[in-house]
């Protein structure tokens, strides 16, 4: 890492922001897209009906924020650490579908979630040391 950034400009904080943006826009897209299918079965297949949902527009805004924050993260954090950590969304999405949307999680899916969490912990450990050195 180059110059040390603190507070809101801290790259680890921005990485967290990126993850939250991705999580929220995925959920908003899902809600917005499925709520608007009734407008036109045909047009819904290419995402056009989803454009009538304000949730989808908010999702697009969050997509832009997530892309910009990802570029910021790349400026400071090695790709081999930042990218694996950013995939925490693959755990957060099924978990929030379970908590918020009431979807089911099979035992096999729980196993996958557990593996991702162990992998994230292994990846995050050197980060703590990297931070200490600075």
């Amino acid at each position: 890492m180059r110059d040390r950034r603190s507070g809101v400009a801290n790259p680890w904080f921005i990485l967290g922001l990126e993850v939250i943006c991705v999580l929220v826009y995925e959920l908003l897209q899902k809600r917005g897209a499925s709520e608007t299918v009734s407008l036109s079965q045909t047009w819904s297949w290419i995402g056009v009906t989803a454009l009538t949902s304000p949730m989808v527009w908010l999702a697009m805004l969050l997509m832009i924020v997530s892309l910009l924050s990802w570029l910021y993260v790349l400026r400071y954090i090695p790709l081999s650490i930042a990218f694996p950590l950013s995939r925490v969304v693959d755990v957060l999405i099924p978990l929030s579908c379970w908590l918020i949307l009431g979807e089911n999680i099979s035992p096999r899916r729980w196993l996958g979630i557990a593996l991702v969490i162990i992998g994230l912990m292994l990846t995050a450990k050197p980060v703590a040391r990297l931070e200490e050195k600075l």
């Binding site: 996958g112 593996l115 991702v116």
Partner: peptide, 30 residues
């Protein structure tokens, strides 16, 4: 990233990335 960008990759990071990959594959298959 290790090969092209010369990022330092140790056993722990490699294992971490591997577990995340396998975990995502299992999550999305089930």
């Amino acid at each position: 990233a290790a090969i092209v960008l010369r990022e330092r990759l140790n056993l722990r990071l490699t294992l971490g990335a591997l577990l995340i990959s396998v975990g995502i594959v299992i999550v999305s298959l089930s």
